[in-house]
């Protein structure tokens, strides 16, 4: 199975180990990911300034991917929401498509709407399937308590995303449990990480992340598992900053979903970029049974 990979900018900026581990896991499961040359930021943040600019900007990214004649795989939930929303809008609204193409024409592009935008976890669930994954993912993490953090933009708005039940999601918990660990419940599990508010009110943004870390600690989780580069930045890279701001000590390792799956598939620590996580992840290796 071949897909083009829309990377976004958070991943190459600070979360390249998410890409590294996702490529390892997906490659092993028979999914090949091709780079999209010249793609920009998805356009998510531009929506707040102007919806038209956001639409044309995202459509440019879709056009570049369309040239490759492959469906588009996305690792970042916010990129996924943006590209999927704009793709759906332009496929269903001829007036908006004309408006967008009129501007894109100046840079030699045209949105045709021939490809689908897919979140990588969706590809695992629907195209690869649980049976194949069960064959390759060993339940090595029996006894581990893992706290899944769902990124907002794979769940909400559900009418656009259609990925999982937005109130009681299970998709990522089920994947995590393939590794033998228990996906634990905790208060406010589907709540935002707070990252978008860092740029408008730092204390509020950090405070949201702190309350999530508090809730994860209360259920004695061994690690958090994310599937969004922005949420990972907030809980992993920013964890020392959160600790300092609120005079706390958490030391909670935060794994990309692909890193956890990769470990259970037999890839080693460095192959999955675990040495690049901010909070030490060696305690997770010790939980592995074989």
């Amino acid at each position: 199975m071949d897909f083009s990979l829309f990377l976004g900018c958070a991943i190459p900026f600070q979360e390249s180990n998410y890409e590294l581990s996702a490529r390892k896991v997906m490659g092993e499961l028979g999914v090949n990911l091709e780079n999209i040359p010249g793609a920009a930021c998805c356009g998510h943040e531009i929506e707040q300034v102007d919806r038209d600019a956001y639409m044309v900007w995202a459509a440019r990214n879709l056009c570049i991917a369309e040239e490759m004649d492959l469906d588009i795989a996305v690792l970042c939930p916010s990129c996924f929401l943006t590209l999927k929303t704009v793709d759906q809008t332009l496929k269903n609204d001829p007036k908006k498509k004309v408006y967008v193409n009129d501007i894109l024409k100046d840079i030699g592009m045209e949105f045709k709407g021939t490809k689908e935008v897919r979140y990588w976890v969706q590809i695992l669930l629907d195209d690869v399937g649980m049976d194949r994954m069960r064959e390759l993912i060993s339940p090595d993490f029996k006894g581990a308590r893992l706290a899944v953090h769902y990124g907002c933009h794979i769940l909400r708005p559900s009418k656009v995303l259609n990925f999982d039940d937005p109130i009681r999601p299970r998709n990522i918990d089920d994947l995590v449990e393939l590794t033998g660990g228990t996906s634990v419940d905790y208060v406010d599990k589907t709540m935002c990480c707070g990252m978008p508010t860092l740029t408008s009110d730092m204390k509020v943004g950090l405070g949201i992340a702190r309350s999530k870390l508090d809730n994860v600690r209360k259920v004695n989780a061994d690690a958090m598992v994310t599937s969004c580069p922005i949420c990972h930045m907030m809980f992993d890279s920013n964890q020392p900053w959160i600790e300092k701001t609120f005079d706390e000590k958490y030391g909670i390792p935060v794994l990309h979903l692909s890193q956890l799956l990769g470990l259970a598939m037999g890839f080693d620590y460095k192959e999955l970029g675990l040495d690049r996580n901010t909070v030490d992840t060696k305690s997770i290796i010790k939980l592995k049974k074989s």
Binding site: Q48, R156, M191, M195, T197
Partner: peptide
């Protein structure tokens, strides 16, 4: 601009 765009209210 405090709104984090999380869509919890919309959902």
């Amino acid at each position: 601009w405090l709104c984090a765009n999380c869509y919890a209210c919309s959902e």
